[in-house]
Amino acid sequence: MIAISINGTIQQFDSNISVAALIEHMQIGNKRIAIECNGEIVPRGQFNQHMLADGDKLEIVVAVGGG
């Protein structure tokens, strides 16, 4: 099991989960999102390849209304 922080909340997963699998699990695959892992952008093209590790900190963002 690995612990990953997602938007400030720690969640547990089986080891070897890819970013793509995480997105599917969270049911946000149909939204336009961007992801940062430990301060670095994970490009969309890398979602399948990027494997998450214990202690990773993710920020998953969307566009919202703002001035």
Partner: peptide
């Protein structure tokens, strides 16, 4: 038009419309 960038509200209704 300007937009802001914020954390996705995980656990929210996945069918809820997005600003975009």
């Amino acid at each position: 038009i300007t937009i802001a960038i914020r954390r996705s509200n995980i656990g929210q209704n996945p069918n809820e419309p997005n600003l975009l």
